[in-house]
Design a protein around this nucleic acid. Structure first.
Length: 217
DNA sequence: ACGGGGATCGGCT
DNA sequence: GCCGATCCCCGTA
């Protein structure tokens, strides 16, 4: 049995065009560690918010006290409140630019008991299906806004070093969910057919996959 | 100080 | 599918 090894993503990963980062985050392991325990999961759905020409990007009208994390060094968590809930992003491009990738869904691979406790009667399929649900499951709130995922012991992202990567043809795209401007931009990316992706079934052109691992075959 | 809108969710029909 | 809850944020005055 070959052990699965993974390495934390470094500054250079995030210091690239936002759309590239959003695509390549699919299949990476999102990790959240707290005194309650550690939760891990495959990232199965992301959205890119671009630094230029993107009216839906919170950074579009410049830096404010609440969106400043988007302008911080690439790899910084940007946690923002919406409708009395939270969503988590990671900043991209270059220091000071103002862009990020929204993490919209993960397939939990460890820490299931802890997530179950936090999500109560919600079914496993819906634990992290959508950006605010993901934050509820992983106990992410504004105390993590501004956290640097390159060095944090509370939140970071890893990439496997000896597992097959997600094939490009397994990446589905669509307009971003809930965004009412720039609807022509296809900046949502998801693991095609994965059960833990939000949105409607017509987004999925492939048959349903039982797990992320199956999508790599 | 005020008010409208938002990268949402869950329950109900 | 639709709708209400809920609250933060920022533009305007």
């Amino acid at each position: 049995v070959t052990e699965i090894t993974a390495k934390r993503l470094g500054r250079e990963f995030y210091s690239r065009p936002t759309e590239t980062v959003a695509r390549e985050l699919l299949g990476c392991q999102f990790v959240r560690a707290s005194p309650d325990g550690e939760i891990r999961g495959w990232i199965v759905e992301t959205e890119a918010y671009l630094p230029h020409g993107d009216p839906a990007c919170h950074a579009n009208r410049g830096s404010t006290p609440s969106n400043r994390s988007m302008f911080l060094i690439p790899g910084t968590c940007y946690v923002y409140p919406i409708h009395a809930k939270y969503c988590v992003n990671v900043s991209t491009e270059a220091d000071g630019i103002g862009a990020a990738v929204l993490i919209r869904g993960i397939e939990v691979t460890s820490g299931n008991d802890l997530v179950q406790r936090r999500r109560g009667t919600i079914s496993q399929m819906d634990w992290c299906r959508g950006p605010a649900r993901l934050c509820l499951a992983l106990s992410i709130d504004r105390s993590l806004d501004g956290e640097d995922t390159i060095h944090s012991e509370r939140i970071w992202i890893e990439q496997s070093t000896n597992q097959p990567r997600l094939p490009a043809f397994r990446i589905g795209t669509s307009p971003r969910i809930g965004v009412t401007s720039a609807e022509s931009l296809e900046l949502r990316f998801f693991v095609d057919g994965n059960r833990f992706v939000s949105g409607r079934r017509r987004d999925h052109s492939r048959r349903a996959a039982d797990s992320f691992a199956e999508s790599c075959e």
